[in-house]
Design a protein around this nucleic acid. Structure first.
Lengths: 213, 213
DNA sequence: CCGTTATAATTTGTATACAATAAGATGAAA
DNA sequence: TTTCATCTTATTGTATACAAATTATAACGG
């Protein structure tokens, strides 16, 4: 997993990001450079580089000379993220069917759903597998930029997913629904397949018990 | 423009980015930290922070211990950027009309077109004004995340626009077309308005004389 | 006891020193 | 001349020292 001869900055980035996504560093937690340097056993230079990356991604927020915190999750964030997802995946789903490649993608997505089922025991792992499934849908665009944008934003949804189980729906129920979606895809039924995807993953915009904005 | 008591890192970021966008640092140019520190009169620390940001944005590319260069513009980039634009603005345009706010937006966009006409003398300024026009379309989503994503990616189009004038169409012709688009919007004619936007700004994917990928 | 102000400690921003890697120059041998 | 190896130089990555700003603490007066 962790390459040798990789810059300390990248190692720091990955470890800090992992800790943010799996809620070891929960939303609102104050991070200090000295604390991170101690935990990661390296100097401030690479740590600061990592922090800078995470700030750009929006996972850490801070002002000039003010201490930095792990970004809070607001209802506004959730709404924005789901809207972004709908724009991308709505377009991707349409393209999958209009290009006639729905059968191919039904198998590709099915494989990801299988992995989700295998990861059902751990919520974080399941969310990661879910992310991979969504990335598969987006891959129809064959657009690296879109992939990168999407991956960055989905990482926030990994955090959110660990707080509010998908509209109150559990892991197993979601897995079952996705299996049905795959079957509808295989039969070329765009309407039913997309309806399931929407219901499962696009949320309502006010389905969380988190901090408001 | 430049705030006081703003970190040197941010100042460096803005100046370097500006130089990249207006082609003072052209695509493919090798940048070194010492060169930048000399030009900006500051130490490596803030310069490296700025570089890090620009790398995340994709305007600078570099490998471990290798020198960094201003990102080249490939046909693949152009295609990806236009596809991204179509996904966002296609959705935005539809929403502008389906929400019945087309008249309001015709005025908002018209104001941006006026600024484009005023900036017609300088290609860079015109591209910046064009960017603002596109941001106005996207603003229908009222989604900060989308705004941020879009702004980052449009900055690349500012560079591209300075190489290949919009599908061979000149500034004045584009301005005229956009004025027509505004009129169609005001009348509620979605089809004609969107057709003009597409023709002017979505490109063909192979309309450049730049380096291939 | 409460609030205010001054002071100390912590924290981030910046500058510089050192280490590791890569790029280029030099020179010898075929 | 060409090619390969070695050495020098330049450049990036990392560590540390210092400055500026914030935050916490303590002292003081009401």
């Amino acid at each position: 997993m962790a390459e040798k001869s990789m810059s300390l900055a990248v190692q720091a980035y990955e470890r800090i990001k992992h800790n943010i996504l799996n809620l070891t560093y929960p939303p609102g937690m104050t991070l200090t450079e000295t604390m991170l340097t101690g935990e990661l056993n390296m100097s401030r230079s690479p740590v600061r580089t990592a922090i800078q990356m995470l700030q750009t991604e929006g996972l850490i927020v801070s002002d000039y000379y003010k201490s930095m915190i792990v970004k809070e999750i607001t209802d506004k964030d959730i709404h924005e993220l789901y809207q972004l997802r709908e724009i991308f995946e709505g377009g991707a789903f349409k393209l999958i069917f209009s290009s006639g490649r729905y059968e191919e993608f039904s198998y590709r997505i099915e494989e990801k759903v299988v992995r989700m089922c295998a990861a059902a025991a751990d919520l974080y792992d399941w969310e990661v597998a879910d992310t991979a499934m969504h990335m598969e849908i987006i891959s129809i665009f064959e657009n690296e930029r879109i992939n990168r944008i999407y991956e960055n934003n989905l990482s926030e949804l990994i955090r959110i997913g660990q707080y509010s189980i998908k509209n109150g729906m559990g892991i197993s129920k979601t897995n079952e629904n996705l299996k049905k979606m795959v079957q509808y895809m295989r039969k070329g039924n765009y309407e039913k397949a997309y309806a399931i995807l929407k219901a499962d993953h696009f949320g309502t915009g006010k389905d969380s018990a988190l901090k408001g904005h």
